[in-house]
Every structure is written in C-alpha cells, then in structure tokens.
Write a protein that binds this DNA or RNA. Structure first.
Lengths: 226, 226
DNA sequence: CCGCGCCGTCAGGATCGCGTCAAAACCGCA
DNA sequence: TGCGGTTTTGACGCGATCCTGACGGCGCGG
C-alpha cells in the first residue's frame, strides 16, 4: 500500500484529501505543521508527500530542505500563491511539482500517480530473490529456503521478513514495521516484534542467540543484513 | 550540456523556447510534429522533452506512449487546454508534468530544472550519505561507518547526530537540539548535550579532545562540519 | 588575581528495552 | 464441537542506556 503524507494546516483540505486518497487505496499520514511533518516523514517513510505552503511554524522551503537533506521522496507542493517566484523557489528548493489552489482533485491525483510512478520505476530488483550465507528469500514466490529445505513461515512472520528484506541494509523503525504488518492502528506494541523476531531467528539464524542477519537496533528498530 | 527536445508546431513558441533555453546553457533540439519528435528522440536521446499537445499529425498521448515504450526521459507537456481530463490523460499516459499556456518562462524553466534534477539523482548519487574524512553517515539506513566498521549509536546519540548532519554547516541552537531529540518540554538541559556530544566525539572524532566535525559554539549550540 | 559562566569528563545508580518462555485466546476447518 | 496452528498477552532476568551530580579546565570581565 502506498503511503502518502499530507501536510496542511487547513482542516477542510486535510479532510478532503484524506477521504479521496483513502478511497483510492492510499494509506494516508497527516501533519499540520512543518516540524511534525518532518518527524512523521522520518518515522514512516511515506512514498510521496503533499505539502501545503504557508504552514504556521516553518517556511515551505525549509520543510522541503529538511526532507531533501536525507530523502528523495517526491514532494508535491500545494499553494494558494499563483506568483511565479513562489513556484520557482519551491521547485528549486527540491519540490517535484507545484499545484495552485483551488485545484481539481482529479488533477492532483493524476500528478500524484505520476510522481509515484516516477519514483518506483527502476528500483524494482531484477531478481526478487535475496540470499544470505544461510538462507534464501524469494519475494515473488513468498518462500524461504534453508539447507535445501523450505522453511515454513506464518503470515505474520513473512510480513515482517518481507519488510526487512525489501529494505535490506536499512534500518526499519519499529513503528513502521508494526504499521506495515499489523495496520495503521498499531505502533507501540513492540512486544509483538520481540516475539516474532525471536521466532524468525530461531527458524533462520545459524545461532539464534547471536543473530547475523536479523539485527536489533535497541530503541529504534530492526535491520536485515545479508 | 543538457539536451532538451522541444516539440511544438507553433513557430512563435518554438523560437521563444529555443532562445530562452539556449541562453541558460541547454542544447536545444526541435521538432514540429509527433513523428519527427519520436525520430529525434530516438536518434539523439535528449535528457528532457518539452511536448506541446495538439500536434498536426499525432495525438499527444500517442507521442507520450511512443516515448514511454523505450525511455523514461522526463516529459513536460505544454497545452492550451486547461481541461482537467486532458491533464489527467497526459499524466497517466506517462507525462511527468503539465503546464498550461500561456505559461511563465521562469516557471517552465524551474519545472525543467526539477525534472532534470529528478532524473539525474538516484542514478549514481541516490544515496543520502554524508561523508567526512574519518566517518560516513547514512541517513536513510541510520548507519554510521568508520574505518570500514560499523559504529553503534544509541537512539539519543543518533537523534543528535541526525539533527546536526541534516543541518550540516549550519549552527543548531541548543534549545532546538534539545526539543528535537528530547521533546518540546525540554530546552534548558544543556548538560544532556554536553554528555552526549562527548560520547559522539569519543565514537566518531579522530581526536575527541580536538573535535574537527562536531564543533561547539559556546553559548549558542553545535555545528557539524564535513 | 579572583569569581563566574560555560564546557568537558567521569562514574554510579535508576530505568528502559530486549530476549525468552509459557500460557491463554483466537481462528479456520473438519 | 474439537483440533492444530497461529496470534496475543503477561512475567521475568539481564544488559544497555539514560540521567544525575560532582569535579576540573578554560576564557572573560571585574
């Protein structure tokens, strides 16, 4: 499911966007000011950001810069300003697109699709198979093989492993992991993760007590290393 | 030099774009209909295409489809049609952006820069990593590497380092740093910062007593230098 | 020269987060 | 309804992490 972060201090627009996006199958994250937008983006790694200019706390260009400091996530700017210099500033700060209010929902959705499409092409791995020294994960077939024998995983175990493998090398926050596997309502049940990570390690690690591939980063999340 | 293909059957606009783009250092290729546009694109592989809809020979979406059949080159559509369905059709056909005539040249140039920037990052340099002489910080993976070995950071240590790296070069006030890492209720506990900055320096600086990257600005805050 | 403010350093104790285990609750299916 | 597999929940021990207070160094102005 594609996660989209909507940043706007206008409750009306926020509501309209949330409804329309949710109806199209997007998972919607929201923020009402720049600081929380940066925090949510860092925590949950949305695939695309819709950013209203004129937030109460930060300049729009500062929010863009704050995101661009560490991520290439597509940013679509919303603004009431039709002034050309505003558009140029936002785009040069790193925004991907600029839509002026009032905007047509159909157009915004099309621009959103275009942005997401752009960012996802080319990143698909040729082989959806990832191998480590001790086991092999086939993302497409949803199968795990170890010592020439298939390892049976429960749906939850697979969900966690899939998230970690898809982001291999990168740290996956426990909040993000919980929301991807259990749903957006979860976020603090870190004990679930402890239980299932232990199970995965028991099934996959050569020495479950000293994991080499399913690494814990205390207080932050988990990481899959080849 | 960036090559841009401009496709338009209106000699006026073609001329205006050619002059403006050439003045900005772009190498300009032109075509006046869809068929020749596809031929020029195939022959010369421009880095970006500016495409007018309403060409004499082909439908705009067909031109887009013809390009998308073999290349991911950014396509910026120009059109006199403000109709929402036209925009949606063009964007869903594979266009990257849609600008309605009459358009401001400054805005078009900004959108052009954004499109080119997007397509060139991520190919080679897509990693949000910041490197100094002695260590490397990977913002996305939340990893720090020094002397080919990973350095383990606690959540608080990482939070501070992340803030500083995201604002590298700039001074980060101690109040701001405290609020970003510990929460809005904090602001005067500068002793926390002293302790954790010392720990970071011990882990990252070549000579912790004489820091080169994690600089203290007495009375103000801290600064991360490359 | 001395006091003051700010910073760096250190170490101990409180707290937090993790791994582990096992029991209870839940679910699909016969 | 009973059963096997799966998910959720609770409790415990242990190590890592965080907070705290004390001490000394440094620069600056009185």
């Amino acid at each position: 499911m594609t996660r989209v972060l909507v940043v706007d201090d206008d409750a009306q627009i926020l509501r309209a966007l949330r409804i329309n996006l949710a109806a199209r199958g997007y998972q919607v994250l929201t923020a009402v000011d720049g600081a929380s937008a940066l925090r949510v983006a860092a925590d949950d790694h949305p695939e695309v950001v819709v950013l209203d200019l004129g937030l109460p706390d930060l300049e729009g260009t500062d929010v863009i810069a704050g995101l661009r400091g560490w991520t290439q996530v597509p940013i679509i700017v919303l603004s009431a300003r039709t002034d050309s210099t505003d558009k140029v500033d936002a785009l040069d700060a790193g925004a991907d697109d600029y839509v002026t209010k009032p905007f047509g929902m159909a157009e915004l959705l099309a621009r959103l699709r275009a942005a997401v499409r752009r960012s996802t092409v080319g990143q698909v791995d040729g082989e959806p198979v990832v191998s480590t020294a001790t086991f092999t994960v086939d993302l497409a077939a949803k199968k795990v093989v170890r010592d020439n024998a298939e390892v049976h995983l429960t749906p939850t175990e697979w969900g966690i492993l899939e998230q970690l493998v898809r982001n291999h090398g990168k740290l996956v926050g426990q909040r993000q992991l919980l929301q991807e596997v259990w749903g957006p309502a979860y976020g603090k049940e870190t004990n679930y993760l402890r239980v299932y990570l232990a199970q995965l390690r028991r099934k996959l690690e050569p020495d479950p007590a000293r994991p080499r591939h399913l690494i814990t980063e205390p207080g932050m999340g988990y990481r899959f290393e080849l």
